[in-house]
Design a protein around this nucleic acid. Structure first.
Lengths: 209, 209, 209, 209
DNA sequence: CATGAATGAGTCTTCATTCAT
DNA sequence: AATGAATGAAGACTCATTCAT
């Protein structure tokens, strides 16, 4: 389905507000005011508040896919390099689509819109399968060890990134980084996070014992 | 503050519903009906829905503290053992207080009750400091390496456990464990999770590189 | 189900307004204002506007039953007398429960509330059966002729009464009865109507031809 | 006023929907969608929803006139035959213009559009006068009895036909006519109804007593 | 102490109509 | 002539809270 510019504008506003206040905590009036449109336009364009949420997923779900199909076929890159690229990509993606990730989480936890749950589920399964293939490939090539729990590994990736991003401020405070600009700090934390997880993954993937 | 039996009964019901449907998604009427009490009693006992939420935190926040004061002083246990005990304890705690953890997360993400945020913040800072001390101790004893990012490490712990618990069903499905009973599966996933994180932590703490 | 005084007050107000403006043409706000109660009380007491309509039927449907069980068994009254009593009763009933009859008709025509349609249907079938029995009795006794179409006969009763009551004013105007008081005119029209239908029924029931 | 083909198409669609769901129960959007035209065209062509309703009456009211002017003058037909023809005609007309009759009734009962009420009123008065003339003619010729209540007689005609048509299904069920096709049943019920009313009228008109 | 009843603000949605093109 | 977009009013309903008893 295609969305007009006006629809995309509403979707972006709604995404921001849903992320900040939750689905129930955001009224269609809030969205309309923030987007500078008449409140009735939301029903007009999307049918209902629920379907507006689904439209957000329709628009965004593609852009949060782990893009690894191409990696899979590329033999000039080692499996470990592939995994590392994937980590970088995920950190960057969460950083850039933070609003959408927040929404995904609260939808799974409490709102449970069926269409949204379905899309999220498909995404997770697909990602696990693709990563599973990279790992199998590494195992075949003898560079990864035999027993690897793909799901736990991905949970560490997703969980660590999310926990770090959501609690950015604690990290800043605990490490006395208030002097950095927001942008500098953001760059720093993404780099630290990326290195941290890559190190963990190298251990998981290659360290026998 | 002390709570009567009736109040505790309301708190438990509210905790369950808030965890399942979110704060905004749960009406005081829902809570009253589920708890089998009169609707007006909630305002009567707690003053308001918001204060009921705060009461939940008042009751539960203590029980999710990492209990490591005693560990810190105990010299018969190695620092790595302490960390491992901490991992086991956290996995167990999240598993047993799942409802409360869910509420903590959604409150941080979207509801942002100031009193709740404050309590959560204190908890996090305190935990980071305590773990930081164990690590410093290990470093002094020369068994942990020098540069360790305590916050990232804790984020990996908390993020991985949470991500795994919240997505239990994916793990079950992906690993074809549908034949296990709920209880068997629960025991299994906690063990796997614990081993997984301990391995990561051993790597973080001891592997120079 | 029992209704409190307040509920009955709301029901009566709603009945009047529904009869006058139709279900869709009456807002719950209208009802609340007319009944002098808070608008939210309607949901509080009945659940919804639709269920309020159903409550009207629950309360009224009994009082519009043709009360002929007792007539059936009474052998001191001739079948024709029974039919005549029934006509009188129906004329009186429609005159007194005019609001409710109006609602019944519009519900059947356009609103089609399933619960309401069901109740109305039961009422019609039951009435047809009871009248059918009186007629069979009369036939057995040899005072009524053999072939009588019970449904058409009842349609003439119900249709004529309804058409006359609904168009009272035409009758008044056409027969130049503006000088009568409302009450006098009402008494007159009921008598005329009753005699008119009884005459028709005597013809239907006894006139071979 | 003349209506274009497009306007007539809208009028027909609106008539069907108004008959089925009532005026308030039918949105202009419903009509536009069902008629396959743009929503704004309704206001564009008719000015408003209310005026669309009035247009329906403008188009249809003529076709439900009892066409008896010619009968009045025709001396080759007896007054009773004239009345009988009138009954047949009315039964047929209601059967064919059922939608419009439904609208007339609900407009009188609840919507009460002044223009519509006026048109309906004119129709009724005119019909009563025309029938009154036939009867007077019959009385002059000595074939009808002296005292005849024209309005009640017409109410019996209109009421019985309407009641029977609206409750066709009860008639079918009560008389076990489910085996007939819709068309067969329709023919049957019209014939039965016609005979029934003619018999009543013969009684009213000729039976002294 | 406990409760059924009541309230007013707020929810999402639908509506007939209008306007710019 | 014809239309997609827009609008403001009104719709039914839910909510947390309060009050009289």
């Amino acid at each position: 389905m295609e969305f007009s510019d006006k629809q995309l504008q509403i979707i972006e506003t709604a995404e921001k507000l849903f992320a900040d206040r939750g689905f129930k905590g955001t009224s269609v009036r809030d969205i309309a005011e923030e987007a500078g449109i008449n409140l009735a336009m939301i029903s007009y364009y999307f049918g209902s508040k629920v379907k507006l949420m689904e439209a957000i997923f329709e628009v965004r779900i593609g852009s949060v896919h782990m893009r690894i199909e191409s990696l899979l076929k590329d033999d000039s890159i080692t499996p470990l390099q592939k995994i590392n690229m994937l980590v970088d990509e995920h950190v960057e993606r969460v950083s850039q689509k933070e609003c959408f990730y927040k929404i995904m989480i609260t939808e799974q936890l409490i709102n449970k819109n069926p269409a949204v749950l379905h899309a999220t589920r498909q995404l997770k399964i697909r990602n696990a399968e693709l990563v599973g293939q990279i790992i199998k490939d590494g195992q075949k090539k003898g560079v990864f060890k035999k027993k690897i729990d793909v799901v736990l590994m991905l949970n560490t990736l997703v969980g660590t990134v999310w926990q770090t991003m959501m609690n950015r401020d604690y990290y800043r405070e605990f490490n006395n980084l208030q002097s950095l600009s927001d942008q500098e700090f953001n760059t720093l934390i993404k780099r630290k996070l990326s290195i941290h997880i890559k190190k963990l993954f190298k251990d998981i993937l290659t360290n026998e014992a």
